[in-house]
């Protein structure tokens, strides 16, 4: 039985696709057979970030419509043979996704994979609802700014009421906070919300803080998930996230501005 993870946020451009690619790769690298699905129909870019865009033949919607088998559509990652990508369609419209169709594909994947990562589109409409409906865990990707926090809060409300688990009165989806594009200097200067401010509103289990980092852009230009860039802070932060998700304890890093090494050692952050 696979564990289904939805990477969601409500707001666009916060780092969902970056996160989906990174954690899917991270889980696969740890030896867990993982599939990552792009739910962003019409705007597919997960395959770009994973550098497999030229190998897309069939997509998610082809599988739903029975035009291709799952095995035909899944693309095996070039860097890790435990990772498979199910790309979105660029040519169809969002209505091509249906609850039954998505459920059927996930059911089939569940038999064969350990983790299924669903990269949600932005918004609180159909696409996002479908991406989270079958989820067991939710990574709520949030930027340290008030509009993003508000949208995440809204998303959490939908997660707790409009999922399969909610409808069946099962144990609710496990929700985790992922604070991304975190710029410690701008937090310190008060331009951005700090972790405490975000947590005061969301009160979620913190899975990790991903610093704003140029390496994210260069990684996505190269078509290699940033988690494989072990020298970059963003890559290390994503590696920590995967470890924490798998139950290991990792102290939170990259919370404080760079210079304050001593204050980081002795300062009393939770």
């Amino acid at each position: 039985m696979a564990r289904i993870i939805v990477v969601t946020s409500g707001k666009g451009g916060v780092g969902k696709t970056t996160t989906s690619a990174a954690i899917a790769m991270g889980l696969a690298k740890k030896g867990h057979k993982t599939a990552v699905i792009d739910f962003d129909v019409g705007l597919r870019n997960l395959d770009l970030i994973l550098g497999c865009e030229r190998r897309v033949v069939y997509d998610f919607i082809n599988v739903i419509n029975g035009e291709a088998s799952l095995n035909q559509a899944l693309i095996r990652d070039k860097n890790c043979n435990q990772l498979y990508i199910l790309p979105a369609s660029q040519t169809r419209d969002k209505d091509a996704l249906s609850l039954e169709g998505v459920g059927k594909v996930l059911d089939e994947l569940t038999k064969d994979f350990e983790y299924i990562v669903c990269d949600s589109p932005a918004g609180i409409e159909k696409g996002a609802n479908l991406a989270m409906y079958y989820a067991d865990d939710a990574f709520v990707v949030t930027n340290p700014e008030i509009s993003s926090v508000r949208d995440s809060d809204r998303m959490l409300g939908i997660l707790s009421s409009k999922s399969r688990r909610a409808e069946r009165s099962e144990e609710p989806i496990k929700e985790y906070l992922l604070l991304t594009r975190y710029d410690a200097d701008r937090v310190k200067s008060g331009e951005m919300l700090g972790l405490d401010d975000v947590q005061e509103i969301l009160s979620l289990e913190l899975l990790g803080i991903i610093p704003e980092s140029k390496s994210v852009l260069s990684a996505s230009n190269a078509g290699i998930p940033v988690i494989l860039d072990e020298k970059s802070e963003a890559g290390q932060a994503y590696a920590d996230v995967v470890d924490r998700y798998l139950g290991e304890t990792r102290p939170h890093r990259f919370i404080d501005p760079k210079k304050g090494f001593l204050s980081r050692l002795f300062g009393g952050r939770k």
Binding site: R150, D153, R154, L156, G157, S160, I201, S203
Partner: peptide, 21 residues
Amino acid sequence: RSGQRIYAIGDLIIMSQVSAG
């Protein structure tokens, strides 16, 4: 959470936070 609505016929006791919205 924001966007959620709760209605109680009698008293309503909430042990957790009630978000803006």
